[in-house]
Design a protein around this nucleic acid. Structure first.
Lengths: 355, 355
DNA sequence: GAAGCTTCCGTGAACGTTTACGGTACTTAG
DNA sequence: CTAAGTACCGTAAACGTTCACGGAAGCTTC
């Protein structure tokens, strides 16, 4: 027999370094002179354990730094203490803010958050992501789905655990329920502000119609105008980028179609517009009033400081976690969307009397 | 014989509700007519299973949608398939970009990412976060520690699994090793650019010295100047906010100490500065050249478009995951930091001949 | 046609918990 | 003094895997 085995020396010696091993419930039990059952009871603060014993066990636990093995617990109880967060990969402002806030409130409720992000061909990536989240044993999933295609993929996907989608203005289905901020209201606030300032010719430089945010903001703009008896003015749809907005602004200047007032679908859109106008001697807000949406960091120091709409991501996160946990635990909770607020700065001004 | 108990039929009939229950390795085995051991072998594509059997098992797995229970696997192998990401709660540009990128490459390597963020009194929150990450069974932890206090907390904390810290210019300790981008180089690039443009009076409007980024960027500025035989000019330390920068800019104007050229510690800092100068008739870049740092979204559409330094978060994430995984698996990998790049736009210009 | 290899597969134990059940020792009532 | 509680606590089984062993065929080889 060819002598050369050796290579795989692994027989049965995991505890090479006994120190490094994580203490188990048995270690605690032994030290405390009780059975592991008793330790388990104090861990889950169940009844049927005397005060003195409880005390002693607790002390030992602290001393040796025992921590309950979550995998083992999950295995036997098959209920979980974590939620999954599914996000698209874009580092755009909204999604990221939501993500962080979400983790925060989940943790405060005793849930760990495992996140996963998906990319462009959503059909497969979303289902795969949902599956692997399921694998890790999450009890529920929140998906941040700003773009329509992604939401569609979520609707078509199947998943054992409850799925909640944060998507502005999208509708719930039997499988996945939806929650969001009331961005349409945000758009209404912005547009109304412009109307209140005396403007009549109010354009919308929109975001991408592939995004819920883009659709909903446009809808809000349009509806407000109609409600006020005004005809919706110019509307051009873009892609959120300052670059596109800049070029659009340039075109407007060239064609002499610069409107009196503009509701820009995002702060970055506003940024591009402002540059295009300013470079051509058209002053904001003197010649054209602009209000943005997002209140990104720094928007208060744009030139001019931007009047814009702010969403409350913390409130959003709080509510939506509440809603998900409710679904997981069989409760039913209120689901009215969060209202954004208008923050008034210097980029929109009273309409001049001319016209 | 007893006409059918019904109620709890569970002796060996798991499929009470065949639908909702998650299939196990045993279900697969039964359907395939093999033992669970064999199924396990095909799952881990171990040898010792015939092609035909493998085929059949694989098919069944697909048919009934079996997915391996991670908790059970983790329990028995005690090696993990997830990493923890610890971040500070700030939605500042750098940290968030890193976070997303990190998850992305981790997933591509087959690891799930559970994230947790900590807040201000770091001493306790960091240790708690590390612990609860450990609880969830991560194999290693990457902490994004932009601020010095947080890093200190990490240094003082104890943790069983490898901890890697992403902190610009911080040093490694026995317990936690550090990795980062070479931000000092970034600062040097920016400063050198200004020198090359012919400027001699180059100030630094710095970030917060509570942040590594602030410290390192200042150091780079100072070193470059000295290397060029120039005396470092004005340096004032702030807090990254456009607001503070704006006020600082105003003060400079009032005291008539506006320098010829400025290396701003961040794009947002630059933003505040620019507004202060512009509002007072001091033109950028005609009267003062400014270069920023970060290349935040939209900085190409500031007024003027900002010359700045861009970090490659994807590369950072790729490398640091590589490094962590290396540590977890006992490999040793290269750890040279990533170089940022200078992106030249319009906010810095050739020095005028005067002076 | 028995010895020795391969190749494939089944079995049992273990991982660290939770949970239901059972048991002891004390207390109290009759 | 016995019966029935009560207050504690121990035990066994189960959760869904992985892994080391061992064993049964089938194929060579003499």
């Amino acid at each position: 027999m060819a002598g050369m085995a050796v290579r795989r020396e692994g027989n049965d010696r995991p505890p090479a370094t006994p120190s490094r091993r994580k203490p188990t419930i048995n270690d605690v039990a032994q030290l405390a002179g009780v059975s592991f059952g008793t330790v388990s009871r104090v861990l889950n603060d169940a009844p049927d354990v005397s005060a003195s014993t409880r005390e002693r066990v607790l002390q030992i636990i602290k001393d040796i730094g025992y921590r309950r093995n979550r995998a083992a617990t999950a295995l036997v109880t098959s209920r979980s203490t974590s939620i999954g967060i599914l996000s698209d990969g874009s580092p755009r402002f909204g999604p990221v803010g939501t993500l962080l806030a979400l983790e925060n409130v989940a943790r405060k409720k005793g849930y760990a958050a495992t996140v996963i992000s998906v990319e462009k061909p959503y059909e497969e990536s979303v289902q795969a992501a949902l599956d692997s989240l399921d694998d890790t044993g999450v009890g529920g999933i929140i998906v941040i789905a700003p773009v329509v295609d992604m939401a569609a993929a979520v609707w078509n996907a199947t998943c054992r655990v409850p799925v909640e989608m944060i998507a502005a203005g999208a509708s719930s289905t039997p499988n996945v329920f939806t929650y969001s901020e009331n961005q349409e209201l945000g758009a209404r606030l912005a547009t109304q502000h412009l109307i209140d300032l005396g403007h009549r010719d109010i354009a919308h430089i929109a975001g991408s119609m592939d995004w819920f945010d883009g659709r909903v903001r446009k809808r809000g703009w349009e509806a407000t105008l109609r409600d006020a008896g005004l005809e919706p003015g110019l509307c051009v749809e873009g892609d959120w980028s300052p670059k596109w907005a800049y070029e659009t602004g340039l075109r407007l200047v060239r064609e002499e179609k610069v409107p009196q007032a503009i509701f820009a679908a995002s702060d970055h859109t506003a940024l591009g517009l402002i540059r295009a106008f300013t470079e051509n001697g058209i002053r904001v807000p003197d010649d054209v009033s602009i209000v943005g949406f997002d209140d990104v960091e720094g928007s208060d120091y744009f030139l001019p400081p931007l009047t814009t709409v702010r969403q409350d991501f913390n409130a959003l996160a709080l509510m939506s976690t509440e809603v998900l946990l409710g679904a997981m635990e069989g409760r039913d909770v209120d689901r009215t969307p969060i209202p954004p607020t208008l923050v008034v700065r210097d980029s929109a001004r009273q309409a001049s009397s001319r016209k």
